[in-house]
């Protein structure tokens, strides 16, 4: 038996999902972070974040079309993590690393938290 593995398929699907997000096609939720609004697909959010998985598997919350995050969440940190969910690319800036890491802890994105820890360790001169 033979099987053809399309090696780019996962990234091609993600690219298309990101284009859909950018064009606001079939986005089904608005995430409110302080006063900033982010449109996204619930399925992508819950596939990447333990917090969103818990929210959208709750039958009382899964139909909400707007979710407010804790006001302590930094909108810039959230924007970087949302971009990561849709692109696989995490932009780590030293000035924002704590905001990104705290937001990743809040969103329960454990592997991103580990990566932030490693980034902080590697950039600490001591």
């Amino acid at each position: 038996d033979s099987c053809i593995q399309f090696t780019r398929h996962a990234s091609d699907v993600l690219l298309n999902l990101n284009r859909l997000r950018n064009r606001d096609i079939l986005t089904d939720v608005t995430i409110l972070v302080n006063r900033q609004q982010f449109r996204a697909h619930k399925t992508v959010l819950m596939a990447c974040s333990g917090l969103f998985y818990t929210i959208f598997t709750d039958s009382h919350k899964c139909n909400l079309n707007a979710i407010s995050l804790d006001p302590k969440v930094d909108p810039e940190g959230f924007a970087i993590l949302l971009e990561f969910m849709y692109t696989s690319r995490l932009t780590l800036k030293e000035s924002l690393i704590m905001a990104i890491m705290n937001t990743a802890i809040y969103l329960q994105m454990d592997h991103v938290v580990d990566t932030c820890h490693r980034f902080i360790k590697s950039s600490d001169p001591s």
């Binding site: 033979s2 053809i4 593995q5 399309f6 091609d12």
Partner: peptide, 21 residues
Amino acid sequence: YEGVNTIKEMGRSIHEIPRQD
């Protein structure tokens, strides 16, 4: 897929949604 002869296809797998119409 153990025991299956897997052939790698490196090109695009699906159509590309345009950035904007």
